[in-house]
Design a protein around this nucleic acid. Sequence first.
DNA 1: CCCATAAGTTAGACGAAACTAACTTTTGGA
DNA 2: TCCAAAAGTTAGTTTCGTCTAACTTATGGG
Lengths: 257, 257
Amino acid sequence: MTAITTDALSASMENYLETIFLLVRDYTVARSKDIADRLKVKRSSVTGALQTLKERGLVNYEPYGYVTLTETGTAVASKVLRRHEALRDFFVNVLSIDPTEADEAACRMEHGISKNIVNRLLDFAEFVETCPRAGAKWIHGFGYHCQDHAQDADACERCITLCLRDVAQDKTKGMETNMAIPLSELKPGEKGQIEGMAGGGAVKRRIRDMGVTSGSLVEVVRVAPMGDPLDVKVKGYHLSLRREEAADIQVRKVTGH
Amino acid sequence: MTAITTDALSASMENYLETIFLLVRDYTVARSKDIADRLKVKRSSVTGALQTLKERGLVNYEPYGYVTLTETGTAVASKVLRRHEALRDFFVNVLSIDPTEADEAACRMEHGISKNIVNRLLDFAEFVETCPRAGAKWIHGFGYHCQDHAQDADACERCITLCLRDVAQDKTKGMETNMAIPLSELKPGEKGQIEGMAGGGAVKRRIRDMGVTSGSLVEVVRVAPMGDPLDVKVKGYHLSLRREEAADIQVRKVTGH
DNA sequence: CCCATAAGTTAGACGAAACTAACTTTTGGA
DNA sequence: TCCAAAAGTTAGTTTCGTCTAACTTATGGG
Ligand SMILES: [Mn+2]
Ligand SMILES: [Mn+2]
Ligand SMILES: [Mn+2]
Ligand SMILES: [Mn+2]
């Protein structure tokens, strides 16, 4: 009888899950050897870890077999990865840290950061990339934007409205007008600010439930070979959209630094 | 024979050092019981830690005696504390996180952050508080400001010059002119932007060596009872200035949010 | 189809960091 | 001054995560 404990995972176990998640994502299945190589531990350490992760109900594992994540394992690993990426992207995009150093530090720090801080960090990075013309008000704007609940859509919207007005007023400095286009037209690596979502309920609701509103930044991470499922990142969450669904989301392209 | 290893300290040992540093700072001496209470461990665990820290040459400790830090112990503890405060202050001042939560997360994350990232984080927080009118250029400005070496004083100065010009142009919005005053006139908690340093070599050099230039933010952390040594923070470093020395440093007061 | 090699497992050890229980030393209030 | 309680230490245990060494299993090129 496996007594699935509900205790918090150790940093080490989180790293195993994260690594398995990435291997499964790229190769559909994780092999012990590859986990060992990535984590720079010996194969026997991996066996041990897999046994305890199995006991906890987080991995599907049979001696000598391939490894995958259970449903809860996937959920946990995604959270770890979100923390990792929130930190790494902040370090790279905002602090201009070298990607390798950023990645390594992120993977050490991801185990100690709290939920609130991840969310704020993501909001802040978004604000920074999104709101370059807020002028003297910009840091006030962010403070307001955060106060009480980061989830408060009204506060976000008010703030973004101000920013957009400032951007509009900026024509004098020769900024071209930026037309809204469907999300499906962005190429991998490009980011857009959500303008509105036409069409159906399901995706719209899924996205809304993550705290995404007009003004949120979306990044197209990658597009599958046939151009169909788009891997998209919003508020640090990865989600997979069908091209058709993405076409219903209007965005204004945000050009990086 | 104490074989003082040079290996990196574990997170746990860093926490002990940090705690001892703070106790010594407040009470001149640290007692085992208080270390145990602050770190939420049993007294016997503290004894064990003190023994290994002593072997490493980081604490002055004799059984049943009070604990202080050696010179190297103090140096190491200061670095840990700087990382802690860089994170905590960023969380509180920039991300608007609740101070308690910020402090706890900072103490978990401080062990994994790298030197470069601490410095960038401090610069960024400073930039954010200092440069509210950089307009569309502000994030570019920070990128530029950081590129190659954060130490590049020219880049900093160029960037700050631009910001100051923008601030000056802002009179239309009713910003009062902000006279430069001596650092010694700031009250605890107040911050100023360094305008210039008159007078003698010693302090000036000490401060310059830390990468502090015109435009850097200085915070008066606290003033000793008699008003004399001021505990001042620049670039995340704490330093103690005599009132006389502080009087030679001209600053423009920066008003918080 | 065989077996050399790669991949995976087991057993046993180790160090770090905590704990409990039992002890010794210190200390301050009656 | 004395001694009970507080503070500190010691010894022995536990858990975790890693390692090495020796083994078992899987596999693919000849
Ligand atoms: Mn990690
Ligand atoms: Mn990671
Ligand atoms: Mn800590
Ligand atoms: Mn700390």
